[in-house]
Write a protein that binds this DNA or RNA. Sequence first.
RNA 1: GGUCCCGUGGCUUAGCCAGGAUAUAGCAUCGGGCUUCUAACCCGAGGGUCGGGGGUUCAAAUCCCUCCGGGAUCGCCA
Length: 567
Amino acid sequence: MFLEFKRQVSSALTDALASMGFQVDDLGLEPSQHADIASKVAFRLAAQAKQNPGELAGRIAEAIFLPDDSLIGKVSAVGPYINIDVSRSYIDDTVFMIRKEEGGFGGGFCQGRILLEHTSANPNGPLHVGHIRNSVIGDTLRRVLKRAGYDVETQYYVNDMGRQIAIVSWALSQFEFDTTRKPDHAIADVYIKANAELSAHPEKVSEIDSLMQQVEKGDEATIKSFDEAVAVAVNGIRETLLRMNVDHDSFPHESGFVRSGAVSRIVEEVKATGRTKVDGGALVVDLSDYGFEKSLVIQRSDGTSLYTTRDLAYHEWKGERADRMIDVLGADHKLISGQLKATLNAIGKREPEIVIFEFVSLPEGSMSTRRGKFISADELLDKIEEQAYAEVDKRRPEMPGDFKKDVARNVGIGAIRYDILKVSPEKSTVFDWKEALDFEKQGGPFIQYSHARACNILRKAQEDGLWDPPRPVDPSLLVEDTEVDLIKKMASFDSVIEASARELKPNSVAIYARELAESFNQFYRLVPVIGAEDEELRAVRLALVDCARIVLANALDTLGIAAPESM
RNA sequence: GGUCCCGUGGCUUAGCCAGGAUAUAGCAUCGGGCUUCUAACCCGAGGGUCGGGGGUUCAAAUCCCUCCGGGAUCGCCA
């Protein structure tokens, strides 16, 4: 709704400026505390018009023409600013639109096919609290882009032939696999042992090298042993992801690109650019004209491919299947992803858009699967659900155990996903148990609670025979400040989704959801719904609560957080 | 040492890319509010040299330079 308002503002303002003989490409529109939207275009034109911005703003405001059905209600110049407020029909239409569009409200304005890659952690152990930052950002981006209207496919790119996997495979032949543990954790156990063994006996590293050569050559027995190890770990990882409401559409494996010949083909394409040379037996690419001082190795001296080489083939494949490619990667991939893009560009292929997130470390230092220094996502999820159960039990002691378990699960996941999302990806963080398990007041559960509260009012009204959804209502009766504020907040959902999809920044949706819940709570505290003074007013307020329920549910869905009807 | 990211009240954080009206919230602290739709709530108060310094501009948290602090990275790991 806000997007349409903004379009009308842009067009009215552009017309007004044209009538005065100005042509501007930047209208300087910005959100404001003084109006629903403000323009600072008078600042820009002041010099050109040889007038002071204040006078100019006044003249522009007067030149704006508003048709009868405009979503713009009021235009006024305050100093150099042009303040623009929405009209009453904007408010009334919003109530109407939300109930008409329901789950689709706030989206559907973009189109195209997107391939989104995220998580893609090495299958050498369970996901840890750093990996899930990738998963939550990636999965939320998927939800944002889908809501915006894109056709999105998410992929987990499985490393099934790198050095780490060779070590896992080797480890399984050296150490006993604990079948009583969750498989990805059991994989980590032997992987950690193997790494210790290899650093104590460096001569054994050649066994790893030979495994990798076998796989690259297509040796079936070795491939089979790799595949089995990878499948075991991936199953465990997938289980954790699904537990967090993160679902991937497909799991392409690196080896597929070697076997199909795509990797060798792309190496030849890179060679054909004349950028390559052999350095110490390895094949390297010169990317100095792209600003990379160090050349990029795309083939080891023993002829085997590297992650980067396979990634080139993977991106070539993705580029042929989508309008946009987006990769969510940790900060350690900054350089390599830049080199990847440059190489793709050099051979005339499409480049992915990269979303980088900074690291999550432990108070004692960075995490490492290899050294066994990490906190697993499963451990965090277990603890938070336990904590959440205690909270539900305290508040709803009379409810059955299944209800409490269900709420605890939803609230726990909501708390974790919200905690991760509320911080911009570019900030590095230090994991803190106390903070992670603290049900911070206005986090995920706060929003979920607001939704449950809206549901509860509607349920109660229904029980009392007061709620009749199809009944026509008159939104113009909604005149309380908290009512209007709530409606405006709901109306702006589309612009939040639009900006988040455009900037690939999921955290703005998290902030919006919290503000929306806050607006609803303020309304709830100040304005009686079921106890409204007359039937007409009660009906339209119930409709408003229904709107809040819908938009809160949509926002929560976009964040990948469940919207319980009761908690 | 080079490159990239970050540095906003006691703690966490928005805004920075597209410079403008009293710098955003949360936690914590203090005070007020449950006979009324679930108080996982609401209202109010105190608390900030926007890391330091310089520059550009009518105007800088935002752009440029520099320094300090933290993180990442710097060819045959991913």
